[in-house]
Each structure stands twice: as structure tokens, then as C-alpha cells.
Design a protein around this nucleic acid. Structure first.
Lengths: 231, 231
DNA sequence: CAAACTTCTCAACAATCGTTGAGAAGTATG
DNA sequence: CATACTTCTCAACGATTGTTGAGAAGTTTG
């Protein structure tokens, strides 16, 4: 039977190689840019298809749905997270600078890397529903890379999450919101401002602020002499 | 003429005071919550009206359009920004703690204050178009309060924008994304982690990181002895 | 050429959106 | 009661959305 023939010799290739995967790539590129710029609900399949020079139904045929297209865009980014995660390794006295620089470099770099992150961030902050939907994706792509580095103590995990949130905030202000003073600064001077603070988060001791709050203050007693504003 | 009568004695009150302004308040409350939770494009007028127990057209009658309703929600928040801005005044050696605490208090506090900020943040990050639309509103509500405090030098303006972005990042991770380690911490221990870093941003000297980058390093030389991890 | 196959477009569906106009329902004034 | 006014609902509009099914256009195999 012809069906069995086609099934046994799967995709033996009688058809054309017209646009083939070129259209698929064009769709993915257009989707990446539009999701990064307009967010998820702000982007339309018709608009993406138009940018790719393709009919909207072809997008559905390749990716199934808008959600799956978005997932494909997020998955299309290369190893940006491991690039950031690697910065957590190495000597501790310049940890703040390395991590800060890694963050800024990824977001200033190739759109292939930064645009999926923009899209993920816009979507994740856009609504509570999207947040919970994307939370496992965030934890997967962030904490899987960062995980082995913070297995030691829960305190270090907290520090890393705080430092990462701070750097995300800076990047949001600089690249998404476009705050004047942040956009004006070049990368190196920004690192000069930020790295000491990140260093303080990642290496200093959690000092108790108010009166009681007995819980905190774990173990490390070496704090705040040379390690904080060092870089 | 009756028209002139009604115009001269404006709203002399022949009509009913049924729901009167109660429905308006209900709409505003429902809109505030939904915009904070679902973002701008994720919220629908029909949904807001449903929460308020009211028809959708009444929303239009009171607020004109979805955009104006959103603007009313944003304007409904009290003086939250000035509350944060006031934290920038006072002795410099505990600046980081005051500012950090003010940020976290506003976001942990009354929904009347925090939800309009959530809505503004979600909308502003949601898409590039919304960002540019809301940027002047952000600058208006943030920098008008903060402005007088940073008139002195451009360097301080940069520092304040960086510190604010960082704190927004922390708040986003804690209240919007819901990162585990950040949600678990209570406010005081969070301040213990964060305040030294904010203090470093707001008071330390911008140290040159790499080799060249001649520009930076302005004037202040007092840095990093007791003021940074003090709280 | 004919048949099989892939690539892509056209037209339309059903749902939902913001928005509008007309008119009930009810209360004050004459 | 009759009139004027406010408050609110009903029904519908036009536009846009994601999504679908059928069928052109073109390429390879027999």
C-alpha cells in the first residue's frame, strides 16, 4: 500500500524544497522581534506573518498555535543563561563585577540572545496568569543553570535571587523602559556603579536591621571591611 | 429656557442619588485590582464591569474609554511616590535602609497604594508602545517627587535611577514573579540583605572597573569604611 | 505525462474586544 | 400627576483576534 510505503520509507522526499525551512526561520525571526517589542498579547499572528512575508495560516501550520510559537521563540535563544551562570564561578572578590558584566553583555549583545529574554520578561511581567504559566519556564532556564552553584546553603540562594532581580531591574530600566540616565551610560561605567552593590549582596553578611527578628545572621562573620566596595 | 436654567443653577439636583458615586467607586476598585493582576491588555471592560456588578457601558459612561479608566486607576493612588521620595532625605549613613524599607513598605502595604503601581509596572513593561506612552507618566510621578532631591549633580541622578531600578527589580521578583526565596523572606531580613547594596549605590564612589574608561570617578572620596554595611 | 507530495494562500469561522445609541427604572422638582 | 433629570441596562455595531479547511502552485518520483 502507498500508505505503508510512505510510512516505512518516511519522508522519502517527493515534494519540493521551495522555501522549505527558510519560511520557518523567517517566521521565527519575525516572532522573536515582535514578541520582544510588543509583548505577547500585543503581538498578532497576522503581524508576525506579515513581517515574515507569509500568510498567517502558515504560522499555524508550522507552530500549531500562538502559545507554541512563543515557546519556540523562547527556546530559540542559545545558552545565554549558562553564560550568565558561568560568571558566578571564579574568585569571590570580583564576583560582583563578573556577574554584572555578564548580565549587561547579554542584554547589549546579539538580538538572537537578548530578544528572547526581552520577550520572556515582557510576557512574564505582563499578567499574573502569564507569570504562573511562565514561572516554571523561568525556573527551568535560570535555576537549572544556576542551581548547582547555589546548592550549598539557602542563604546563598536568596542572595543570588536578590542580585539577579536587581540586575533584571537595571536591565529593564535601561533596555525596556529606557530611563534617561541609564541609557546614556556605557557599559563600563554602569558596571562601575552597579558591581559594588552586587558584590555586597553576594558576599556580605546579612546584618539584622531592626531590633528583634532573631532568625537571620547565619554564620559568616567576615563582612564589610575590604570585600564590599572592592571590585 | 430650561437649558439655561439647568446651566445657570448647575446640577440643582432633580435626579436620583441611587448608586450615584458608589458605582463609580466600585468600577474604579474593580479596575484597579484587575489592571494590577491581569495587566492592561489582559483586562477587559466587561470583566471589570462584571466585578463591579455593573454593565460594561456604564464604565464607558463614567470614564470614556479603557485608556482613561486606566489613567484614573493610576491617578487614584495616593502619595506613594512622595512617601518613597521622602526616604531620600535625612542622614546619609542610613540612606540605603530608609529607601529600601520605603520601597518594600509601599509594595507590601495597602492595595490602594500598591495595586496602581503594579498596574503601572505591568503596563509599562508589557510592550514598547505602552512604555513610550507611559514613560512621561512615570517620569511625572517619579521624577517630580524625586527631582528636587537630585538637582545637584547628574551623577546622583544616575545613582538614584540605578537604585530605583534595582529595588523595582526586587519588588518585581517578589510580588509579581513570586520568586521562592524572595517571597519567603520577611521584610526586615530582606532589608538586611538589600540595604547595604543600595547604600553602596547611593553613597559609594563610582570606581573604575576595567582599564581605561577615563570619564568616571567624579569627586567624592569618602567611601566604604563604615557607611556601607552599617544600616 | 501522471501521481504523490510539500509548501503555501484564500476565505471564512466563531469568539471577543472596545464602543455606541436608545431606552428602561427611578427620584427629585413643579 | 407631570415633567426634568440622573442612573443604569439592553442590544447591537464594527473591528480584530486565533484558528481551521480546502485548494492552488510547484517539485519530485514512477
Amino acid at each position: 500500500m502507498s500508505i505503508d510505503q510512505a510510512r516505512s520509507a518516511r519522508s522519502l522526499g517527493t515534494g519540493p524544497r521551495l522555501g522549505s525551512r527558510a519560511s520557518r526561520e523567517a517566521i521565527l525571526l519575525a516572532a522573536r522581534t515582535r514578541f520582544a517589542k510588543d509583548g505577547f498579547s500585543g503581538s498578532t499572528i497576522r503581524g508576525i506573518a506579515g513581517d515574515a512575508g507569509v500568510d498567517a495560516s502558515l504560522v499555524m501550520q508550522y507552530f500549531g498555535s500562538k502559545n507554541e510559537l512563543f515557546a519556540a521563540v523562547i527556546a530559540s535563544g542559545p545558552n545565554t543563561m549558562s553564560q550568565i551562570a558561568e560568571a558566578f564561578d571564579g574568585p569571590e572578590d570580583c564576583l560582583g563585577e563578573r556577574v554584572t558584566r555578564a548580565f549587561l553583555e547579554v542584554w547589549d549583545g546579539d538580538p538572537v540572545e537578548s530578544e528572547p529574554l526581552q520577550a520572556l520578561l515582557r510576557a512574564a511581567i505582563g499578567s499574573e496568569q502569564a507569570t504562573t504559566q511562565l514561572k516554571e519556564l523561568i525556573q527551568e532556564r535560570v535555576l537549572v543553570d544556576l542551581g548547582p552553584r547555589l546548592q550549598h546553603d539557602a542563604d546563598m540562594k536568596t542572595r543570588i535571587e536578590i542580585a539577579s532581580s536587581m540586575l533584571v531591574g537595571v536591565v529593564v530600566g535601561r533596555r525596556l523602559v529606557g530611563l534617561d540616565a541609564l541609557v546614556r551610560q556605557d557599559r563600563d561605567s554602569l558596571v562601575g556603579y552597579i558591581a559594588p552593590a552586587i558584590q555586597a549582596i553576594l558576599s556580605a553578611e546579612s546584618s539584622d536591621v531592626s531590633s528583634v527578628t532573631s532568625s537571620a545572621a547565619p554564620s559568616r562573620s567576615t563582612a564589610a571591611h575590604g570585600s564590599i566596595p572592592v571590585i
